[in-house]
Amino acid sequence: MADIKVVNLSHSYSIGTPFEKKALDNISLEIPHGQMVGLLGHTGSGKSSLVQHFNALLQPTAGQVYVGGVDINSSKITRRDVKHQVGLVFQYPEYQLFEETVYKDIAFGPQNMGLSSSEIDERVREAAGFAGVSEDLFEKSPLELSGGQKRRIAIAGVIAMRPGVLILDEPTAGLDPEGSRLILQNLCSYRRSTGSTVIIVSHNMDDMARIAERLIVLANAALVMDGTPEEVFSEPEKIRALGLNVPQSTQIALALKEKGIDLREPVFTHELLLNAILRIKEAAVC
């Protein structure tokens, strides 16, 4: 079980130079296995730095990171092994494709793990299925494909390592609404079938409110909000005060409140807004 536990984690860049900057400031949190987490915050709030600590790409300036109970920075070997357990998909991952064929590119991760070719083959096909990459594309060069397809191939390349935790940094950036929706759909069904933890770093409040079970909000290198969407959106004003957008449905709910109509419960999706308004309508009729 790949539970993540972070204890008093701090990280600074360019230590000892005039450019020294605190990216993470004393962060502690636990993510039990199997959660769907949305990690939110401004550019520069520390989101990307935080997730790069989960697979030891960055090492803490202070504090510890445990994955499955093991301090991942205790040795070179744990630092290497954690990369198989915690898969990280970077922003615009399509720019990291390099193999001649789609198949070989997806197989790169499993190959680095030293698996047998039959095992690799099984994983490549499984991962392609999860990421929505058709097997017809396997022998094509990734370079000839569309941006959306490349993105899926890159995601499949990480899923093929069968990580217990899958982290994606802005997986829908730059895609059209349809493409974004499909990728998020794939990620949700991936998590349902494998039971892995999925952590999505995003700017898109609407998407995260809809699909995440838990939202973590960072601001200025610190953890400022952490809870279920219900909990987090019970204080929409606080999110706004942090300079972040709230979902469109929450904006409408807030505007209604200003006009004297209190929907009384947290609203952060279309359905919740619709039902809350309809309830008030019923109440008025009775």
Binding site: K83, H84, G87, P93, Y95, F108, M161
Partner: peptide, 16 residues
């Protein structure tokens, strides 16, 4: 900057 990014991404896929 781009080289840095690509290296991190491949490291995350187990490149050494």
């Amino acid at each position: 900057e781009e080289t840095d990014k690509i290296m991190s991404a491949q490291r995350a896929r187990g490149a050494d």
